[in-house]
C-alpha cells in the first residue's frame, strides 16, 4: 500500500498550517492579518469591476454581490437549500464512514482479504464519481438517494484506504508484546490496533468530507436534487449573475465551514495521540 501515503498532502497529515492560528504568534495579530487578507481581496474585486476591465454583466461589483448575499441569507429558501446541501454531505459522509471503516479493518487485518480485493479497490478508487451522475440521473432520478449515493461513493475510498493503511501501520512491537502477555485477539484489536489507526481514519474522513461536499453539490447542479447547486443552476439559467456570484461565495463558505469543523474536531479528539504531540514541536 505504498500509494496510500503518497495520496496525502502534508497538510492532511498534520492539519492546517500552524502559522495561521498557532500559539507562537499573538492571536490578535493573526486575526488582523486574516481580516486584512480578506479586505484586500474584496477591495481588489471592487477595483476590477469599477475599472471596467471586465464587463458588469460578467462580473458584478463586490458591493452589489455582497448586497445580494445579504439579501439571500435573510430568505428562508436560501437556508433550506443550504441545509439540504449540508444534509446530502452529512448522510453521504456518514454512510461512507459506516461502510468503509469496518471493511477497511477487515482488509487491513487479513493479508488474504487485502490481497483478494486489491485489484478491485485499485481499479474502482480512481474512477471519478462525477462520471456516475448521468447513470444515477437515469436510474434513481433527481432524488436525495442519488445525491447521497454519489457523495457516499466518492467519500468511501479515501476512508477505506486510510483505514487499511492505519490498521497495517500499527506498531508490531506493541502487538507482539500484547500477544506474548496472552491478551486475546479481540482485546488487541480494541486496545492497540484501533486506537493507533484512529488518526489515519480521521485523515481519511477529512479528505472524504471535502469529496462528499463536492459531490453533493455536483448532484444538485447537474441532476437538480434540491440544494445550493440547484439554486445556482437556476441563477445561471435565468441570467441572474449577481445571485450566481453570491451563491458561489456561499458554497465556498460551506466548504470552509465543513473543513474547519473537521480540523477542529480532529485536533481536540486526538489530543491524546502521539501524532498530535509530535506535530506540536
Amino acid at each position: 500500500m505504498a500509494s496510500a501515503t503518497q495520496e496525502i498532502t502534508a497538510e492532511d497529515l498534520h492539519g492546517p498550517d500552524p502559522t495561521v492560528s498557532a500559539t507562537g504568534t499573538p492571536r490578535l495579530t493573526g486575526f488582523v492579518v486574516f481580516v486584512l487578507s480578506f479586505a484586500f481581496a474584496l477591495a481588489f474585486w471592487q477595483a476590477v469591476s469599477v475599472s471596467g476591465v471586465v464587463r458588469e454583466q460578467d462580473l458584478p461589483s463586490m458591493t452589489a454581490t455582497m448586497g445580494e448575499l445579504w439579501g439571500l441569507v435573510q430568505t428562508g429558501s436560501f437556508w433550506t437549500a443550504f441545509l439540504q446541501t449540508a444534509r446530502g454531505w452529512a448522510i453521504g459522509l456518514g454512510l461512507a464512514t459506516l461502510l468503509a471503516v469496518p471493511i477497511g479493518i477487515v482488509l487491513g487485518l487479513s493479508d488474504l482479504a487485502g490481497r483478494a480485493f486489491r485489484v478491485p479497490v485499485e481499479f474502482l478508487r480512481p474512477i471519478p464519481s462525477a462520471a456516475l451522475i448521468p447513470l444515477l440521473f437515469l436510474t434513481l432520478g433527481p432524488t436525495l438517494q442519488s445525491e447521497v449515493f454519489l457523495a457516499a461513493f466518492g467519500a468511501f475510498w479515501p476512508i477505506l484506504v486510510q483505514t487499511m493503511y492505519g490498521v497495517r501501520d500499527v506498531d508490531p512491537v506493541a502487538v507482539d508484546t500484547a500477544r506474548s502477555f496472552g491478551v486475546p485477539k479481540r482485546e488487541r484489536l480494541w486496545r492497540i490496533t484501533l486506537p493507533s489507526a484512529v488518526p489515519y481514519i480521521a485523515t481519511g474522513m477529512r479528505i472524504a468530507s471535502a469529496v462528499a461536499l463536492i459531490l453533493a453539490f455536483t448532484a444538485e447542479l447537474f441532476m437538480g436534487t434540491p440544494g445550493l447547486g440547484k439554486l445556482l443552476n437556476y441563477a445561471q439559467s435565468y441570467g441572474l449573475t449577481t445571485q450566481l456570484y453570491a451563491l458561489a461565495l456561499a458554497t465556498g463558505a460551506l466548504g470552509v465551514g465543513t473543513h474547519l469543523l473537521f480540523t477542529t474536531v480532529e485536533r481536540r479528539a486526538l489530543r491524546w495521540h502521539p501524532s498530535q504531540r509530535v506535530e506540536a514541536v
Binding site: 492546517p16 498550517d17 502559522t19 495561521v20 493573526g30 492579518v33 486574516f34 486584512l36 487578507s37 480578506f38 484586500f40 481581496a41 471586465v54 454583466q57 460578467d58 462580473l59 471535502a210 461536499l213 463536492i214 453539490f217 455536483t218 447542479l221 447537474f222 445550493l228 447547486g229 445556482l232 441563477a235 445561471q236 449573475t241 450566481l244 456570484y245 451563491l247 458561489a248 458554497t251 465556498g252 466548504g255 470552509v256 465543513t258 473543513h259
Partner: peptide, 28 residues
C-alpha cells in the same frame, strides 16, 4: 508574513467545490 497574508485566501478557494465556479468561468 506572505504566507500569513495569503493563507486565508488559499484556504477559502481550495475549500470551494469546483462545480460552483463553472458558470462563473464561462461568464468571465
Amino acid at each position: 508574513w506572505a504566507r500569513k497574508f495569503a493563507m486565508p485566501q488559499i484556504e477559502y478557494w481550495r475549500a470551494m467545490p469546483p462545480p460552483a465556479l463553472l458558470p462563473i468561468s464561462v461568464l468571465l
